[in-house]
Design a binder for these strands. Structure first.
Lengths: 213, 213
DNA sequence: AGCTACGGTTACCGCAGGTAACACTTTAGT
DNA sequence: ACTAAAGTGTTACCTGCGGTAACCGTAGCT
């Protein structure tokens, strides 16, 4: 029957798709962001048009790859976020989880964070339609957890969303910088960021002889 | 004499350079990031090779454009940061200055933030050599101010740098998200972020019936 | 005149994303 | 068994971009 045949073929197609994604993974891990479709196809042992048949365009492949890693990372983050521990410990565990991930596969996460897209010619299109989806998804996810767990009073939902995206951005920028300069250990970075989040900026005293005021 | 001639020519070259940068500005403002060299040259009323004579390559033009806006923005931020006011007020003023800037010229700042670079073939090169320089510069600048003004005890220098980059990242990510969704007014966003920086995350109470613990 | 120096152009290279059209193998229908 | 369809794969091409080489005109100096 058609159905059995179809499922068979769809199974095969799915297997193929996974193989292609793994090949793409390998080449992105090797060549960093900006890996060419040609290179990915070559790594997979095939040629370009097959990639396009499976993923539509480069954005499609990017999306598939991103979804994959994003889902995996979000699962880890959720686990750290939902652990039965004190809030500060959970925050530190979450930060550490993220930093460990980008430390382990910097190329991949650079690829995910810096899509390097843009450039449509028709004027009618919107800008940056799906730029940096990983950051957005993490931000929304964190916002949801914050909103579920914390009592923030009226307007708490919006506050949670701002905080979600803000904290994720903090994590990302600090992580990116840290990955480039390695000025300290991961644990120190985690502590510093958690301290920032815990209000040490407000609590710190002025330096004696501070100029201007 | 050669000197007077040279200065004359250099003056003219500088004027030209400024004209070209302004043209680039216009086209980036219109087409967003990913504006092509051809488009910029056309807007300036000339052709590509002249651009390359002036700026070397696209990275050079990007750098020149970035330096321009970055310097202007950093001046505004420094002014807000150094104002004679309470710390919280200064922080809010700084956040608001940044957000007002990206609100006024979203395309330009998208261009600055998402360089969309990468892709050298020789293996010997470093990755992301000058990626997102605006964020880095803002981070370093803020770090310096923090380190100058606040008494953070031992290890304060590193702490300041982490915070600088972290806060800038928070500002950037929240701003980017806010620019896309406009879920609230700028003032509300500023307040929310300042609240986050002021430790409200740590101070907030658990929600009653919070699952898991 | 003739030479150099500079602003400017056309025409091209290489490479990337993306696609059309063609070839081979399997499977199904009669 | 012969044909027809459908899926897998290929080569060869188009477009547009970053980047460059080679050429053209005009000013000024000697």
């Amino acid at each position: 029957m058609e159905t059995t045949q179809r499922t068979d073929q769809e199974r095969a197609a799915d297997r193929r798709r996974r193989e292609l994604l793994e090949a793409a993974d390998r080449v992105v891990l090797r060549d960093g962001p900006g890996a060419s479709m040609n290179a990915i196809a070559a790594e997979a042992g095939i040629t370009k048009p097959i990639l396009y048949r499976h993923f539509g365009d480069k954005g499609g492949l990017y999306a598939a790859l991103a979804t994959r890693h994003t889902d995996a990372l979000l699962d880890s983050l959720r686990a750290a976020l939902d652990a039965p521990a004190e809030r500060r410990e959970r925050v530190e565990a979450t930060l550490d989880t993220y930093l460990a991930a980008i430390e382990a596969r910097p190329q991949v996460y650079r690829f995910l964070m810096h899509p390097a897209e843009g450039g449509q010619q028709g004027e009618g299109f919107d800008v940056g339609k799906h730029s940096a989806p990983l950051l957005r998804r993490m931000g929304e996810e964190l916002a949801q957890v914050i909103e579920e767990r914390l009592d923030l009073g009226p307007g708490g939902e919006q506050l949670a969303r701002v905080w979600g995206h803000g904290i994720v951005g903090m994590m990302h920028a600090a992580g990116d910088w840290w990955l480039g300069e390695r000025p300290c250990s991961r644990a120190e970075l985690v502590r510093s960021l958690a301290d920032l989040l815990w209000g040490r900026l407000a609590a710190a005293g002025d330096k004696v002889g501070s100029p201007g005021f």
